[in-house]
Simulated scan of single mutants.
Amino acid sequence: MGIAAERIDRLFALAKAAAADGEFDRSREYVRLARRIAERNRCGLPRKFKRFTCPRCDVALRPGVNVRVRVRDGRVVMRCDCGATKRYPYAEEAAESD
């Protein structure tokens, strides 16, 4: 794991903690800084980072704090307080294994 990837993970942890405390501006700054680091070092962002940050307002998403999470027709639907919606599929587990 490179230095850039470690820094991105650390910034994402700080952004989640700031969002949990209600400091959304601070969370936004951490997310924007992490995205800039990824661009400069040409490394991709981890899946958890992409799924739990708002593409519109750049805040870390915390279910129950600043995002509403629903499950609809094999998809997870996440709506941020800013109005942005993210949808991604989920795999259902086997109902019964005989």
Score class of each variant (00 low, 15 high):
R56I: 09
C54D: 01
Y30G: 01
C43M: 11
F52T: 12
F49S: 01
K16G: 10
I3N: 12
R62G: 03
C43K: 10
G22S: 08
G2S: 15
S27Q: 04
V31C: 07
E6N: 14
R26L: 15
I37A: 04
R70F: 02
A60C: 02
E39D: 10
L45E: 02
A17K: 14
E39H: 06
R36A: 10
L33N: 12
I8C: 08
C54P: 00
Y30M: 03
L45K: 00
R68Y: 05
P46Q: 04
A15G: 04
I8F: 07
G2K: 12
N66L: 03
R47L: 15
C54A: 00
D21N: 13
P55W: 03
D58S: 14
C54M: 00
I37E: 03
E39F: 06
R32W: 10
A20V: 09
V59Y: 04
D73M: 08
R72H: 06
A15Y: 04
A34N: 07
N66R: 00
V65I: 11
G64M: 00
L33W: 08
R47T: 12
G22Q: 06
L11W: 06
A18D: 08
R28S: 10
C54N: 01
V65C: 04
L33V: 12
K48P: 09
D25Y: 07
V59E: 09
R35S: 00
G2V: 09
K16E: 15
A17S: 13
A4R: 04
A19M: 03
A17N: 13
S27F: 04
V71Q: 14
A13M: 13
R47I: 11
A34W: 05
P63G: 02
G44L: 13
C57I: 07
D21I: 07
R47P: 08
D9F: 10
K16S: 11
A15F: 01
V69W: 04
F24D: 10
R36D: 11
A19Q: 05
L45C: 00
A13T: 13
L33P: 00
K48G: 09
V71R: 15
E29H: 08
D25A: 11
P46T: 06
A18S: 11
F52C: 08
N66M: 01
F12D: 06
R36T: 08
P46K: 05
L33T: 15
L61R: 05
N41V: 05
I37H: 03
R68A: 10
R68L: 11
R26P: 04
R7M: 13
D73F: 08
K48I: 15
E6C: 09
D73K: 11
D25E: 15
I8Q: 05
V65T: 11
E29A: 12
V31L: 09
P55Y: 04
L45F: 00
A20E: 13
P63D: 05
